[in-house]
Amino acid sequence: MRRQMMAIYSYLLLWLGVYLGVELSAFDPNTPHLQLFGGLFAINIVFYLMIRFGLSDRLRDPSLTVAQMVVGVAFITVILYFARELRGAMLSIYFMVMTFGVFALSRRQMVLMALFTMVCFTLLEFYDWHESPETVLFTYLFGHWLILLLELAWFVYIGGYIHNLQVRVREQRESLKDAHDRLTAIAVRDDLTGLYNRRHFLERLDEELALSDRKNTALHLAIIDLDHFKQVNDRYGHQAGDEVLRRFADIAQATLRRSDLLARYGGEEFVVLFPQSSGEECMAALERLRRQIAGQRYEFAPDLSTTFSAGLVDYRRGETAAQLGKRADMALYEAKGAGRNQVVHNS
């Protein structure tokens, strides 16, 4: 859109120059500038509407840069026909069009546009020589042709260099974005399970406590501990223990609601924050998760059965995060003391 508006602005300046040239007799007085520029602006309005309303999105060149440059080169060639006396000086106008391609076209496309420009100008020169050979100096025509060729070759070289710089900058920007995303994930995610880590959970916990106080909504906290997890590591190895932790994380994410905040608190301990849920709903979710975990079987140890104990508590208005966590810990210890593989709910 910005390039399109720049093109229209450039054509307005060119129209002003042509109008002054006609008035000062530097152009052919019969130059139909009103018709020429009227048609040019009509074409550019079509381009503008196609881009503005997304009609060009299906094309290989959604910005219509190539189409706009083709129209611009053809139009400037027609203008040069009426500016025979100033043709040498006005060759630079071609580069006004070529500039639009520097930041959008590849070197191959720039070469093709340069060839198209040379073809248009060659046809113009040939037409002049054919129509009035007695008034046209061949060396004069060839000089213009050679100057344009050399300048276009230089322009293609510089344009390709700029395009390559753009590609490298774009790749570096994407690389930096990927690195930033990875660092962001590391800051809030646990490497092994992909769940939120303890630090992020505690930050969110403070936010949820404040929100619950402000809106007077229910909030529950559960602390989950995998039963006898140390024995899994000792008997089957740490890789097996990692697999158990990942399996728990995957099942818990699939079982709990998306609004429930699940995190790995440390080691084999996990925490779940249940916003806007009743105690019965939280107990049902934890019991469902407990049964699924107990029913898991592992290829590395078909005889292994994993269970967990959990303590669930209701949030009390004005309670701090530390106080809430301490009560959840006490409920967890009750579940372990009662034989493990169960959930204890203390309001």
Rank of each mutant, 00 (worst) to 15 (best):
M118C: 05
D28T: 00
F138M: 14
I79Y: 05
L49H: 08
T65P: 08
H33S: 05
L36V: 09
A83I: 03
T77E: 05
M50S: 11
V136Q: 11
F27C: 01
L49F: 12
L112T: 01
T65K: 06
V46Q: 04
M6K: 12
E85M: 09
Q109Y: 08
M113T: 01
T135V: 11
A42K: 02
V111M: 09
I76A: 03
R108Y: 09
N30R: 11
E134K: 06
D28Q: 02
I8K: 10
H33G: 00
A7N: 03
G17Q: 08
M113A: 09
L59A: 12
M98W: 05
P29F: 03
L49A: 13
L124P: 05
E23I: 00
V136T: 09
V102E: 08
V71H: 03
Q4N: 15
L49V: 14
I76T: 13
G54P: 04
F126T: 10
N44H: 14
L34A: 11
G17I: 07
L105M: 14
F37D: 03
R3D: 10
T65A: 15
A114D: 06
L14P: 01
S25D: 14
P133D: 09
P62Y: 05
L20S: 09
F75M: 11
H130T: 10
W129L: 15
V102F: 10
Y11T: 04
F41K: 03
Y127H: 15
L80K: 04
I76F: 12
L64K: 01
M113V: 06
F121K: 01
V111C: 04
A74T: 15
T99W: 04
A67E: 12
S92K: 05
